[in-house]
Computed example of a mutant assay.
Amino acid sequence: MHRGLKPLLAVAGIALAAGCAAPSEPQVTFYSHGNSVTVNPAQYCDATGQNCVTPPENTVGDLRVPDRNPLQISVPGEVAAAPWQVVFIYRGLGGEQLDGRSQVFPPDSRHAYTLQLPPDGGRLEHVEVQKFSAVLTPGADGGVDFGIGGSWILNVQQ
Rank of each mutant, 00 (worst) to 15 (best):
T114K: 15
L136D: 15
L71Y: 00
V87Y: 06
A134R: 12
A22Y: 11
F105A: 01
T59F: 11
G100P: 14
G49N: 13
E25M: 14
S24M: 05
G4F: 01
S24N: 08
E25R: 15
Q50V: 09
G150D: 03
A42L: 00
P41Y: 02
L154D: 00
L154C: 03
V127W: 04
D120M: 10
L93M: 06
V87N: 02
A140C: 04
F105D: 01
P55A: 04
A134C: 05
S74T: 14
S133M: 07
A22E: 11
L117R: 13
F146L: 11
D62H: 11
V144D: 04
A82I: 02
D99T: 15
Q85S: 11
C52Q: 00
K131P: 10
R3G: 08
R91C: 00
Y90I: 01
L98N: 05
T54K: 15
L117V: 11
Q130H: 03
K6H: 10
W84P: 06
I73E: 10
S74V: 09
V53Y: 15
V37L: 11
Q116I: 15
L98Q: 12
A81N: 10
H126E: 11
L136S: 13
F146E: 03
F105E: 08
A17D: 06
N69A: 11
S74Q: 04
A47V: 13
R123C: 03
F105N: 06
L5W: 06
E57T: 10
A22K: 15
C20N: 00
Q103H: 12
G142Y: 00
P76F: 09
L16F: 09
G4L: 01
D145E: 13
Q157K: 12
A81G: 09
L115D: 04
L8H: 13
G94N: 12
Y113M: 09
A134M: 08
Y44E: 04
L93S: 07
N40I: 06
Q103R: 14
F132Q: 10
L9N: 12
D62P: 00
Q157F: 11
Y113L: 13
L16G: 15
Y90L: 02
D141I: 12
G139S: 06
G92M: 09
G49Q: 11
H33D: 10
Q27D: 03
A80H: 08
V87M: 03
P138Y: 02
W84G: 03
L154N: 00
P119L: 01
D120G: 13
P119E: 05
P41C: 04
A140R: 13
P76M: 02
A140S: 05
I73H: 12
C45E: 06
S109L: 09
P66Y: 02
G142Q: 01
K6N: 13
G92C: 02
F88P: 07
A15V: 12
G34M: 05
P138S: 12
I89S: 14
G34I: 05
T59Y: 10
I89A: 11
G77Y: 14
G13T: 00
Y113I: 08
P119S: 15
S74D: 02
C20P: 08
Q157C: 08
T38A: 13
Y44W: 14
P56V: 07
A140P: 10
Y90K: 04
H33G: 09
Q103E: 14
V127H: 01
F132T: 09
I89L: 14
Q27N: 13
Q130E: 12
N69Y: 07
L136Q: 15
Q130W: 02
G143T: 01
Q50W: 08
